[in-house]
Simulated scan of single mutants.
Amino acid sequence: MIDLRSDTVTKPTLKMRQAAFEAEVGDDVFEEDPTVQRLELKAAEMLGKESALFVTSGTQGNQIAALTHCQPGDEVLMEEEAHIFLYEGASMSALAGVQPRTIKGTNGAMDPEEVRSKIRPENVHFPDTSLICIENTHNKAGGAVVPLENMQAIYEIAREHGIPVHLDGARLFNASIASGISVRRFADQTDSVQFCLSKGLGAPAGSIIAGSTEFIRKARKWRKRLGGGLRQVGMIAAPGLIALEEMVERLEEDHSNARLLAEGIGNIPGLKVEKAVETNIVLVNVEECQRTAEQFLDQLRENGILAVPFGPYTIRFVTHFDVSEEEIQITVRRMAEMVNQFKKL
Rank of each mutant, 00 (worst) to 15 (best):
I242P: 05
V248P: 08
G228K: 02
S324P: 13
E288T: 12
Y313C: 04
P239H: 03
A293Y: 07
L226P: 02
G200Q: 07
N303D: 11
E252D: 11
E249T: 05
G240I: 01
V308A: 03
L251P: 04
L260C: 04
F296R: 00
I177N: 05
G311P: 15
A307T: 07
I265G: 07
E325T: 11
F317H: 09
E288V: 12
G311K: 06
G227W: 06
I209S: 06
G304S: 10
G200N: 02
A262P: 14
G304T: 12
K218L: 04
K221G: 01
I315V: 15
F195M: 00
L201I: 08
H320E: 09
E325A: 04
C196Q: 00
R185G: 00
R220T: 08
E214L: 04
R259K: 15
F186Y: 14
D298Y: 15
I216Q: 04
D254A: 12
V193I: 14
R220Q: 03
H255K: 11
R301D: 03
G311E: 02
E288M: 14
R250K: 14
K218T: 03
T292S: 14
E246L: 00
E246H: 11
R184M: 10
I268G: 03
V282G: 08
K199Q: 09
N267P: 01
G206W: 04
V284N: 08
S324Q: 05
P204A: 00
L244Y: 06
S256Q: 13
P239R: 00
G234S: 02
K199L: 03
